[in-house]
């Protein structure tokens, strides 16, 4: 019974959810016109901070994750302030460079990070949650689940709630004075400023929010995986995250969600041609950009869906 609660599927589901957080961490700065490739670096900061705090100081995971995300956010503010003078590709490369510098520090600060081997034995969220519910006298077998099924299920549900809360936050923020400021800066920075918008504040705000989200995702990643190493936060990761957002459609948040889901699943679906899957991935990106450079989902497409729903398939 309940065999459909398959740890393998739940694990993939959890990765998808973490990837959605990462995609949103690129989406938010992009919504104020800033292309950041620093997500992998901020993710690493979050992951290492939380892992080290929980391993070395027995901090509860919850606090570790919060600390990791906050530190990434603070770094985002520190980096965001001077980076504001940079636009477009300059900012992209500077943030990419920042990510590389962070990664190299992880590799070389061996006394703290154990170098390229990475950290093992990071406390896992699932076990912690299991212990917690057991504290209330609950056993997974009471609802007919095996322990590991239950653990993966809990992790998935927790991540799902976090993703939901994040999307709720971003969408609410978007439909408000803050969100309007972001998009006006994205569309015309000078005009936005002459409308009384403090562009410095809002640009740093969106950049730091992105950094915070990436740090949060990184910290969660550490406690879901149980081990981390610098190569988890490399250039490849930065590019992967960017592609989630751009592939899905960078104009709308649902694009990031879709991109993360689709592109996390795709390598799994392409397992039968696993040797060629990255080759196919590369070709797919080229074709997509040629055919639909704004990404799969955009405002017009969504508008059409809404229109169809409203008029029940009639006119649009």
């Amino acid at each position: 019974m309940l065999d459909f609660i398959n740890p393998y599927y739940l694990q993939i589901g959890s990765f998808i959810l973490i990837n959605i957080l990462l995609a949103v961490s690129v989406y938010v700065p992009l919504s104020s016109g800033q292309l950041s490739l620093g997500s992998a670096g901020f993710m690493g900061i979050g992951a290492y901070t939380s892992a080290l705090l929980t391993i070395n100081f027995d901090l509860p995971i919850f606090l570790g994750v919060l600390a990791g995300a906050c530190l990434a956010g603070i770094l985002g503010i520190i980096v965001g302030l001077p980076s504001l003078r940079l636009t477009g590709v300059y900012l992209a490369i500077a943030t990419l460079g920042l990510g590389e510098v962070i990664r190299v520090i992880f590799v070389n600060w061996e006394s703290l990070t154990r170098g390229s081997i990475g950290l093992t034995g990071v406390p896992q969220i699932g076990r912690e949650l299991l212990n917690l519910v057991r504290g209330f006298g609950f056993e997974p077998s009471m609802i007919g689940l095996k322990n590991n099924q239950f653990v993966f299920l809990l992790v998935f549900i927790l991540l799902f709630l976090i993703v939901l809360a994040t999307i709720w936050f971003v969408v609410r923020q978007q439909n408000s004075r803050v969100g309007r400021s972001f998009s006006s800066i994205q569309m015309d920075e000078k005009a936005a400023e002459s409308m009384g918008i403090n562009i410095m504040y809002f640009k740093v705000l969106s950049f730091a929010q992105g950094a915070f989200l990436a740090g949060l995702a990184g910290a969660l990643f550490a406690h879901v995986m149980g081990y981390i190493s610098p190569s988890d936060f490399s250039y490849h990761r930065a590019v992967e995250i960017l592609i989630f957002t751009v592939f899905g459609g960078s104009e709308v948040i649902i694009g990031s969600v879709f991109g993360a889901i689709f592109l996390t699943l795709m390598p799994e679906l392409l397992r039968f041609v696993s040797e060629y899957r990255y080759i196919i991935y590369g070709i797919m990106l080229v074709i997509l950009m040629a055919v639909r450079p704004q990404g799969i989902l955009d405002i017009h497409l969504l508008g059409r869906f809404k229109g169809i729903k409203r008029s029940k398939g009639g006119m649009r």
Partner: peptide
């Protein structure tokens, strides 16, 4: 702001006469 509706353009214009921040939004 070319990709915004006319209404939103004008609402952005009212930015300096409003004050909602992240939390209240």
């Amino acid at each position: 702001f070319s990709q915004m509706t006319a209404l939103k353009n004008v609402m952005v214009g009212g930015h300096s006469r409003s004050s909602s921040g992240v939390f209240s939004s």
